[in-house]
C-alpha cells in the first residue's frame, strides 16, 4: 500500500491577531496538528499600542484544505480576521534577504555585477567578502541566491514573505 499525495496550490494568508502570549504557538501548532504545511511565516506587531500583530503565512494545500485552513484559523479566539490574499487578487509580496558572499578576483567582480542587475545593495564589505541586501518576490530572491552560490555564497538569511493587498482599501 502507498500513501496518496494531493495536488496543492500556494496561497498567501494575512492573519490579524491579538498580540497575546502564545498566539504564534497557537497558529504554528494548528498547522502541525492538522497536517497543514507552512512555507513561510512572519509575524510582527503592526499597531500603535502593541495590541495587534499581522501574521503572514505562505502555505500550500488543495482548494478544499485551503478553505479548512482559513476556517480553522478564524476559529481561534484571538484571531480578528484571515484574508486569503492569493484568492483576493492583486497584492504585493516582498521578502528581504541578506546574502554573504566571499571571494577575490573575478568572482568578486562577477558578484558585484550580478548584484547590480538584481538591485542588491552592499551593506557590508571586507577585502574578501560582501553582504548584499536584496528585496523582491520569492522567485527573484531564489534566483539571486542560486547565482551567488556559483560565485562564493557563504550564508544567507531571509525574512520570509510579507504581503499586502493593492489599492486604497485594507483587505
Amino acid at each position: 500500500m502507498h500513501i496518496k499525495e494531493e495536488t496543492k496550490e500556494r496561497h498567501t494568508l494575512s492573519v490579524i491577531v491579538d498580540n497575546e502570549p502564545g498566539i504564534l504557538a497557537r497558529i504554528a501548532g494548528l498547522f502541525t496538528a492538522r497536517g497543514y504545511n507552512i512555507e513561510s511565516l512572519t509575524v510582527t506587531d503592526i499597531s500603535e499600542d502593541d495590541l495587534i500583530s499581522r501574521i503572514t503565512i505562505v502555505t500550500s494545500a488543495s482548494a478544499d484544505v485551503m478553505d479548512q485552513i482559513i476556517a480553522q484559523l478564524e476559529r481561534l479566539v484571538p484571531v480578528h480576521k484571515v484574508v486569503d490574499l492569493t484568492a483576493l487578487g492583486p497584492h504585493v509580496e516582498r521578502e528581504l534577504a541578506l546574502v554573504k558572499v566571499g571571494g577575490t578576483g573575478d568572482h568578486r567582480i562577477e558578484a558585484l555585477r550580478l548584484a547590480d542587475v538584481y538591485r542588491a545593495r552592499v551593506v557590508d564589505a571586507t577585502t574578501s567578502s560582501f553582504i548584499f541586501e536584496v528585496t523582491g518576490g520569492t522567485e527573484k530572491i531564489d534566483t539571486f541566491v542560486s547565482l551567488m552560490r556559483e560565485v562564493g555564497l557563504i550564508e544567507v538569511a531571509r525574512t520570509g514573505i510579507v504581503a499586502i493587498s493593492r489599492g486604497k482599501e485594507a483587505a
Binding site: 478544499d64 478553505d67 479548512q68 476556517a71 480553522q72 478564524e74 476559529r75
Partner: peptide, 11 residues
C-alpha cells in the same frame, strides 16, 4: 454553528 465543520470532509 462552527464554520470549520462545513465542507471539512463532505462538500
Amino acid at each position: 454553528i462552527d464554520r470549520s465543520s462545513i465542507n471539512k470532509t463532505v462538500r
